[in-house]
C-alpha cells in the first residue's frame, strides 16, 4: 500500500494539474501563442523531434563534460585544501570570488577566449557545478571522527594510508551530496551556456539556443517543448548521481541503510 502511494500520489497530482491546465485555457479562452495546451506541446515536440534530439545531444554533452570536470577538479582541490590549512586559506577566498561572479558576466569573457560553442559551454557548466562539490567535499575531508583518527595513530598509519582508508571513504557521503547538487545544476548550466555562448550548425544548436530561435519564430508550443526536454535531461542527471550514491553507500551509510 505504501509503495503504491509513492507512485499514485504524484500521478494523481499530475492528472489534476494537466486537467486544470486544459480547463483554464478553455475557460479564459487563452490563445495557443500565449499558453499552448499539453497536447499541442507534445505534438510540437514530435514535429521538431530531429531538431530537439540534436540539441539535447549538444546540451547533454556540454553538461556532462562540465559536470565531470567540476567533480574531478572539485574533489582534487578539496583534498588538497583539507590537508593544508595554508593552501585552504590561500585558495578559498578566490573560489568564493569565482562563485560570486555571475555567469552572465563570465560568459562573454569565455566566448572572447574560447570562441562560441562547446568549450565555452563546458566552462560555464563547470563554473556553476564546481562550488557545491568543493564546499561539500572539503567539509567531508575535515569532519572525520577524532576517535577514528586516533585509531589510525595507534596503528602507526602513514599520512597516505590515513587519507586513503579513512578520509576518502569518510568524505564519500559529503562528496556525493555535492555531486547531487552539481547534477541538478549541470543541465541548467549547459542550457545557460547555449543561451549565452552557444553556436549553431545549420540553424540547430543546444537547447538554450533553440529556445531563442523558437521564441523569435513565435513557435510557442516548440518553445515549451524545449522546457520538457530540459526537464527530462535534468532527471537523467539526477538519476545517474542517485544511482552512484546508492552503489557507493547502500551497504553501510545511514542514509541508505534500512532498519528492520
Amino acid at each position: 500500500m505504501k509503495r503504491q502511494n509513492a507512485w499514485l500520489l504524484p500521478l494523481a497530482t499530475g492528472v489534476v494539474l494537466i486537467a486544470a491546465w486544459f480547463g483554464l485555457k478553455r475557460l479564459f479562452r487563452i490563445e495557443s501563442y500565449v499558453l499552448p495546451s499539453p497536447a499541442e506541446i507534445l505534438a510540437a515536440a514530435w514535429h521538431e523531434r530531429a531538431t530537439l534530439l540534436t540539441s539535447a545531444f549538444v546540451t547533454g554533452r556540454g553538461a556532462l563534460l562540465g559536470f565531470l570536470a567540476a567533480v574531478g577538479v572539485g574533489f582534487a582541490l578539496s583534498m588538497v585544501m583539507a590537508f593544508s590549512i595554508r593552501l585552504k586559506q590561500s585558495l578559498y577566498p578566490f573560489i568564493l570570488i569565482l562563485q560570486m561572479t555571475p555567469v552572465i558576466i563570465l560568459a562573454p569573457i569565455f566566448v572572447l577566449w574560447l570562441g562560441q560553442g562547446l568549450p565555452s559551454i563546458v566552462m560555464i557548466t563547470f563554473m556553476i557545478c564546481f562550488f557545491p562539490v568543493v564546499a561539500n567535499t572539503t567539509m567531508g575531508f575535515i569532519s572525520v571522527d577524532r576517535n577514528l583518527q586516533e585509531l589510525f595513530v595507534m596503528c602507526n598509519a602513514t599520512r597516505t594510508q590515513e587519507i586513503r582508508h579513512l578520509r576518502v571513504p569518510g568524505a564519500m557521503p559529503y562528496f556525493l551530496t555535492g555531486m547531487k547538487i552539481a547534477g541538478t545544476l549541470a543541465p541548467i548550466g549547459a542550457i545557460t551556456g547555449d543561451f549565452l555562448a552557444g553556436g549553431a550548425q545549420n540553424g540547430v544548436g543546444g537547447i538554450g539556443f533553440m529556445t531563442i530561435t523558437y521564441f523569435s519564430q513565435l513557435k510557442i508550443p516548440a518553445l515549451f517543448a524545449t522546457g520538457l526536454v530540459a526537464c527530462l535531461m535534468g532527471f537523467l542527471f539526477v538519476g545517474g548521481v542517485n544511482y552512484l550514491h546508492w552503489r557507493l553507500l547502500h551497504r553501510w551509510h545511514d542514509s541508505m541503510v534500512r532498519k528492520e
Binding site: N147, L148, E150, L151, H165, L166, W252, H253
Partner: peptide
C-alpha cells in the same frame, strides 16, 4: 587501545 565506543569504520 580499545576505545570507549567500538570505534569501527562503518564502511
Amino acid at each position: 587501545l580499545v576505545f570507549q565506543d567500538a570505534n569501527l569504520l562503518p564502511w
